[in-house]
């Protein structure tokens, strides 16, 4: 059973990591747009976040997979990771936005007061603080994306679930196959969230 599933583990983890990084970049950018942008940019960023969060992730995966493959020849792995990142980006937008809004206004005033430009103040003063505030929610998002990564199954990415399905078909033992996959996920989510919480404690600063 393990020889079927273990290769999928790596795929699941890499899809998750790519999606998280992409989602993080999109999320941070969109959050800044939502808070500091001009009305047009604000509106666009807001619609992205609202629309994507209202649609099931699996639908996003399908749409992006077909749209991407209509233009360029990309592996299902990359399309899946990008789609997952695009979806996670909407959720991370809200995480970062909440964090930015939680930073007291005085911080911006003080940064401008020592002569920083608005952009510089956002980059050097607001975002570093907002990032620390956002960490608990981001840790939660890591496990959510990890679980959502099972959805790229639908476009044929050979991650854990797809592997479990092969295993189930060739061994005729679906309970063992999917049960083992479930155990892998539990171990992954538990170790990831515990490890990240430990990291968070280490780097926590008092406000």
């Amino acid at each position: 059973m393990l020889q079927f599933l273990l290769p999928g583990l790596g795929v699941t983890v890499s899809v998750t990591l790519i999606a998280l990084c992409l989602g993080g970049c999109i999320g941070a950018l969109m959050a800044v747009f939502r808070v500091y942008g001009n009305p047009v940019i604000k509106g666009l960023a807001a619609s992205y976040s609202v629309v994507v969060r209202a649609v099931p992730v699996v639908v996003i995966i399908f749409i992006l997979f077909f749209v991407i493959s209509a233009f360029i020849d990309l592996s299902p792995f990359m399309s899946g990771a990008i789609a997952l990142g695009f979806a996670s980006g909407a959720y991370q937008t809200e995480i970062f936005r909440g964090a930015i809004l939680s930073i007291p206004r005085g911080q911006m005033t003080a940064a401008r007061g020592i002569g920083m430009s608005r952009a510089k103040a956002i980059r050097c003063i607001i975002l570093p603080q907002a990032f620390r505030v956002a960490i608990p929610s981001l840790i939660n998002e890591v496990t959510l994306v990890l679980k959502d990564s099972s959805l790229v199954f639908v476009i044929g990415v050979p991650e854990l679930m797809r592997r479990a399905q092969y295993a189930s078909a060739s061994t005729m033992e679906p309970l063992l196959a999917f049960g083992t996959a479930a155990c892998f996920y539990i171990v992954l989510t538990l170790t990831l969230s515990k490890a990240l919480e430990a990291v968070e404690k280490r780097f926590a600063i008092q406000f």
Partner: peptide, 23 residues
């Protein structure tokens, strides 16, 4: 709580629909 919150819904669905008939 750990089982249902720690695994993807998809795994749960497949365990219930494909796995449980085995027992």
């Amino acid at each position: 709580l750990t089982v249902f919150r720690g695994t993807p819904l998809l795994v749960q669905l497949f365990v219930v629909y494909y796995g449980l008939p085995e027992i």
